[in-house]
Amino acid sequence: MRGLDDSTEILIRVGQTAGEQVKHGWNAFLNFAARDNVLEVALGLIIANAFTQVVTSFVSDIVLPVVSLLPFLNRNMDQKFAVLSKGPHYDPHKGYNTVGQARDDGALVLAWGGFIENLLNFMGVSLTLFTVAHLYMLISHNKIIKPTVRCRYCKKYISVEASRCMNCSSWQDGREDPLKLDNDGDDEYEL
């Protein structure tokens, strides 16, 4: 360009190149993000997160308070814990009332009640999803839950209906097995 020195021209060219690269990168991201399967996965994750919150609330707010009424449990499950190592300010007459109080004092705590609560949340979510999948299969006649077996050769799981393994591409009916001679001298496939 006339009237500009070499360093200014170089800066302008670098700026144009950088702008083109940013525009190219943005277009590539839009092409990736706007595909159908990416949007389906994003929607599935959002719905799964909301679903998990509902089941967690059900377990924490409805199931566990009822379980806490059992005679040997005198408080909520998330506050059941065992002190493995006492903190520096431990009072043997009072002890620790909550997990947070024990942890703030520096005690080593085994919070088994919180673990049981998380385990119940997991079981609730997984059983509910399994039930929803079965209901969907009954209504739509589409198979979501597909039975599997192990491949005879590579031992990886494949569909029961598969005639060839998708991992090692071997036939599942034994047609690739080497021939062996029977006691009668007849050729027979090994099973």
Rank of each mutant, 00 (worst) to 15 (best):
H134E: 13
R2T: 13
L120Y: 00
Q16Y: 09
H93Y: 14
A102M: 00
Q172M: 13
R103V: 15
L138H: 06
V66R: 09
N31S: 14
S163T: 09
F58P: 02
T148I: 11
T148N: 07
S140R: 04
D177L: 02
S170I: 08
K86E: 12
H141W: 03
V59P: 03
D6T: 13
D91C: 10
W171L: 10
N31P: 02
E190N: 14
S159T: 06
N37K: 00
F51V: 05
Q16F: 08
R2D: 11
L179P: 05
F122I: 14
T17H: 11
Q16H: 08
G114S: 01
V67K: 03
L84Y: 08
T128K: 00
C151M: 04
P147R: 02
F81A: 07
A82H: 04
V63Y: 03
V67S: 03
Y96N: 05
T17Q: 10
V149F: 01
F29I: 14
L119K: 10
T148K: 02
I116Q: 03
Y157L: 09
A107G: 01
D182R: 09
I144K: 01
N37P: 05
G174K: 02
L73P: 00
K94S: 12
Y136Q: 10
I139G: 13
E190C: 09
I46S: 11
L129G: 12
K23I: 09
Y90I: 14
L108N: 09
A111H: 07
H141N: 11
G185R: 05
G185F: 04
S57A: 14
V109K: 00
L129T: 14
I12Y: 01
H141G: 11
L129W: 07
H24S: 12
I12W: 05
Q79V: 04
T56G: 11
H89C: 10
V22I: 04
H24Q: 13
M123S: 09
V55W: 02
V99N: 00
K180P: 12
K180N: 13
M166S: 13
V66M: 07
M77A: 10
P147Y: 04
D104F: 04
L4D: 05
N76V: 15
K156I: 07
L120I: 05
H24F: 14
N183H: 14
K86T: 12
F130V: 14
R175S: 15
L70R: 04
I158D: 00
R164A: 07
F51A: 02
L39H: 10
N118P: 10
P178Y: 04
H24A: 13
I139K: 06
D187C: 01
L191D: 15
I47Q: 00
A18F: 09
A18R: 08
I62K: 06
L70S: 05
G114T: 03
S126R: 06
S169Y: 01
Y136R: 12
V149G: 08
Q101H: 02
V55E: 05
C168H: 06
Y189F: 14
N167S: 06
W171G: 10
K94H: 09
L64N: 02
V38G: 06
L39E: 10
